[in-house]
Design a protein around this nucleic acid. Structure first.
Lengths: 193, 193
DNA sequence: CTGAATTTTCAGTAATTCTTGAAACATCTT
DNA sequence: AAGATGTTTCAAGAATTACTGAAAATTCAG
């Protein structure tokens, strides 16, 4: 299979980026290729297109499967395994986030909690624990929030994001409501910009 | 300088995590050490505590400075350079996000935009471009949103995050307001839960 | 069951990235 | 300006990670 220059550029860039994020180049390229492909691909096609050995592709796919980032399917009358990336890019994003959480965030939080249980023996330890507490709380806050937000459907999520910093406007409105509906009316409508 | 077991565990874990995120172990450990330290440290102290060579520390610090993650200062009557991590952990988080954006997100967006300019020659390219557009939009949306939210002060940000998925409640209220203030009154107050 | 097709494993090699000591460089003190 | 102190650079060696081909394992058709 021959990749058009357009696709090739993307695949190469993505592989490069992957390697900056602790994902190996092969895996990044495989995923990029699957992501833009209009149909599922089998391992030989990928090996051919990317110029990697068959076994390298096999390992890359194994990795991607452990991340739940690829779907495996069979084509009628063909024994080979065909792979594809999910249609919904938000779903990809979520899966990535979930897996990363499970693999990296959770163990880190657990380590921090353990460290916080110990009785500080010195001033240095007391200070260190205070810092670890800050880190723990920040991580917990951001990931809990993230997992909450993640549960929203794509449409709501997009709507929310499009508002950007303007969510604060909503917070102000909320506060005003809670204060007993004093204050101003709906002239706050540019909130929707 | 001798690290207590508590600090050592943290430093080691952080170095390990770093290496999963494309940050080398030394750099991760240096930062962890600075993060929990109650006072600024000089390069020799770090080399000693972590068991790395002086030159390795020097390179690590250079890297951390390029990320704007450490502050350099001088102590009165001491010619050596002392380093520390910012007090405010949110500030650290923001800096990290900004730098990562500058280095990785922006170039990726630019590559995607370029790819989208090309006239698709084949069906495969047409499909690929549609996918790249999805990716471009997702990245742009999330990063724009992130940079907006990033500008909020820490307190507002924390407030927002503590709400988690409940922000949708705010959206509902907003929609109701925009629909001309029909609908219900302030009995929606559990929004604050 | 047999054998063809396909996939996975794995040990060895290749490539990359990390780490170091030595030398160069810089800055201060006298 | 010389010497002391401190920092950076860099080439080479060490360690890690990626990649491959060959062999083993699996799957399926007949």
């Amino acid at each position: 299979m021959i990749m058009s220059p357009l696709i090739q550029t993307f695949v190469l860039h993505f592989g490069e980026m992957g390697s900056r994020w602790g994902i190996n180049r092969t895996v990044g390229q495989i995923y990029a290729l699957l992501f833009v492909s209009e149909r599922p691909l089998n391992a030989d096609e990928m090996a051919d297109a990317l110029g990697f050995s068959r076994s390298n592709i096999s390992m890359g796919l194994k990795e991607l499967m452990s991340w739940r980032l690829v779907k495996l399917q069979h084509l009628p009358g063909d024994r080979r395994e065909y792979f594809s990336a999910p249609e919904d890019i938000w779903a990809i994003f979520r899966t990535l986030a979930e897996e990363r959480r499970k693999r990296e965030i959770d163990p880190t939080l657990s380590m921090l909690r353990d460290a916080l249980m110990a009785k500080p023996a010195t001033d240095a330890e007391k200070h260190a624990q205070a810092r670890l507490k800050e880190m723990h709380d920040l991580i917990e806050l951001t990931t809990d929030w993230f997992s909450d937000v993640q549960k929203l459907d794509s449409k709501t999520l997009a709507q929310l994001m499009k508002m950007g910093g303007k969510v604060t406007k909503l917070l102000e409105i909320k506060d005003r409501l809670l204060l007993g509906l004093g204050g101003k009316g709906p002239e706050e409508q540019e909130t929707n910009g």
